[in-house]
Amino acid sequence: MIGDLLINVGAVSLLAIFAFWILRTRYLVGVVVVSGAFSLTAAALFVVLDAVDVAFTEAAVGAGIATVLGLATLTFVPHFEKPHRFKGAALGISWFPALLAVATGLLLTLAVSDLPRFGSADAPIHNHVAPHYINESPNEIGIPNIVTAILASYRGYDTLGEVIVIFTAALAVLVLLVGRTRSRRDKQRKGRRQ
């Protein structure tokens, strides 16, 4: 129990270090690779929090595919972020975005005190539909993995929409990247030639 908590806090702190690193470095290959490490650490955290399915997905999708796609993107674009000073930036911090982030963070922190204690069994979330899923799914669905039962059966409509979103995204990327596409540079080059 205490061990779980220590792993939990340690993993989240590691995530914070990674996020800070992502913010500070200007080498984009490093940024993408560290974001992969970020996802993998998050997956480890999900295992501690008993979400094995989510951990599996995060490790495969977040750490695998997203990193590969990010590196593929970097074969097209420059590998370094250009230093740029926004209006009112000082000491490497853009103050207006920083103010916005801190204000939002403070508001969220105020809201935390209303949250039930982490791990308490009588939190509202555990007293709505979840007991039905846990107690009735052995009779109604009859498969051991409750997550799969909810995903495919109780909330099948949700997952259908999900699959259609992925389908649409794949088609959109297809439209954007595959085949001969006109670009502004081509037009300019053609204009110059005439």
Partner: peptide, 14 residues
């Protein structure tokens, strides 16, 4: 995926 962690999303990505 019915018996342990896993399912269509993970299998597809793998």
């Amino acid at each position: 995926g019915d018996f342990g962690p896993g399912g269509g999303f993970q299998a597809g990505v793998i």
